[in-house]
Amino acid sequence: MLERNLARRAPTVSPLVSEASVTVRPLDPQGRLAFRIKPAALAGRGTIDGFDLTGAINSRTSPEADSGMRTALRLGPDEWMLITAADEVDERCEAISAALTGVPHSLVDVSHRDVGFSVEGPGADVVVNAGCPIDLAAKAFPAGSATRTILGKAEIVLARLAADRFTVTTWRTFAPYVQGFLVEATRS
């Protein structure tokens, strides 16, 4: 019998090496929680279980000290993607639910649904813009931005960590396509 969590998290995509100055790397598994709540129901709660929910729509908030382990991407007026360590999903779910007892909300573990990549290096924005039609100028999409959008024929969640550093997250079955698309784009 398989021990719980014993089965190795097989990467859905094998790393494809690009020789270009922009690198595309699959990210290690993360805990990912789809969190929905009407802003009014937050009733002034700025932070829940260490997740900062005060960011504007299409922004990414991450406590400095926590190096991304309690990251909140606000993808819509009532929708956040909460990112945590892969092995802390249950704890986070319990803590958030406890903090919101009696408050209508939705918290769904989608850690296995999503696969992420980092796109990094000078000209990373150009690589993303090979298939993503949104404006990635520093003014329009500064570091700290995050949004759901399109890459080629796949839907992605795009977050900008720094001028030349993005993460691209997609559903697992789109991951080989997204990775292939990005690597192809680095060759231009």
Binding site: I57, N58, L75, G76, P77, E79, T147, R148, T149, I150, E155
Partner: peptide
Amino acid sequence: WLHGHGCGR
């Protein structure tokens, strides 16, 4: 209009 591949609204 639906911003489906965006904020979902």
